[in-house]
Design a protein around this nucleic acid. Sequence first.
RNA 1: GGAGGCUUCGCCUAGUCUGGUCUAUGGCGCCCGCCUGCUAAGCGGGUUUGGGGCUUACACCCCAUCCCGGGUUCAAAUCCCGGAGCCUCCGCCA
Length: 420
Amino acid sequence: MIDLRLLRENPELVRASQRARGESEHLVDVLLAADERRRSMVAAADSLRAEQKGSSAAVKQASPEERPAVLQCARDLATKVKAAEGEQAQADAELRQAQLAISNVVQEGAPAGGEDDYLVLREVGDKPALDSVRDHLELGELLGAIDTERGAKVSGARFYYLTGVGALLQLAMLQAAIDQAVSAGFTPVITPTLVKPEVMNGTGYLGSHSDEVYRLEADDLYLVGTSEVPLAGFHMNEILDLSGGPKRYAGWSSCYRREAGSYGKDTRGILRVHQFDKVEMFSYCAPEDAAAEHQRLLAWEEEMLAKVELPYRVIDTAAGDLGSSAARKFDCEAWIPSQGRYRELTSTSNCTQFQARRLGIRYRDGNNKSVPVATLNGTLATTRWIVAILENHQQPDGSVRVPKALQPYLGGREVFEPVR
RNA sequence: GGAGGCUUCGCCUAGUCUGGUCUAUGGCGCCCGCCUGCUAAGCGGGUUUGGGGCUUACACCCCAUCCCGGGUUCAAAUCCCGGAGCCUCCGCCA
């Protein structure tokens, strides 16, 4: 949620952000009113409670003859306090609701507009010159690496098996990602993939994108769509020591997405699936360091993309295409030869203090005051990368060249040969 | 799944039976100061978190906070109900 103090001091900034996202400015007025109302309710309840304290003490000290009158007075006050607290609770709830309805304030510099209004920051690497292009599924089947038919038989559409070199490739890639992260000082973490509602909500995934999330009704738990969620929850309701710099974690987990509303989109192969594996970077840092940390995360993503030798471009996502928690987002999109276009392989978001405020994650600043930290996340490798690796490194006979940096993780193997 | 125990302001802990004097005790740690040639020891003070008020600021004041949520009461760390987490034992099972 956004900072109420900032809102009070500079409501125009929040309005401008709402405009850039294409979201309602009216929500800002609703929130301001709710904030004002709650403040007056709290003040009223506070002073009544103070009065009641004195009154209770008076009962104790009263002499037997004055006691009945004093007691009656105390009873009346108790009734008033109860009423005031009820009103305060309602005002609290209304404020929170209004606060949750507003997305994070967009960082200055992010392009305005929607999904198609991204800005291309750079293009890196050479697209492969291919006479004839096989798509990743055809290659995957030739190599005995991907089996979507049996995936569908066993679990339904958008499920798949990674078999043989497919399974090995994924493990190699994720292990390489973890190694890179550990070298960079990240703490590797294997996370839970089922989380409580408060954690899922705290990370901002139960807002407009709640259709994307699997929920286990019987247990009131959610399946995570990214290890960002359990990594953000890791330090929930804690005060962190950031005096040594950002706290960085690299989460390895399976990820689950319902892909509601994407019917008919990317139905072939494993580009868009309900379950995949991912190594995700997650940083907790001081708010003033967040923009720089965001660039560092982007640099680590590009380092990993270079290791698997993929041509890609970096885009600055437009305000209207940011998740509700993000203030700024950069995606790296790899060239997909079979589609003749770039597709997202990584995404790094600066959530500023938005998630931390919901999750109660703070640190002590220079004045020893506890303030919400900034949180950031970024992709280091996912199952989807296999699509780009197979297609970009394919050879005319259907074999696939193994990127040098992955070869040590595959017993020195330099090429995947067709098995049929 | 069944039975029992536990949860207090960084850590440990007193307080809960018997409601008000709890504005929560003590120790450890940490911070500031004094003392000392330096260090240790010693001495004095400070040290939950959040919201609000007042201030240039420091200070100070008010409210809430004893795992969480309800309830009883003029009044709850304390009594009652519900929940969570941890521990022990039993049962079942990878």
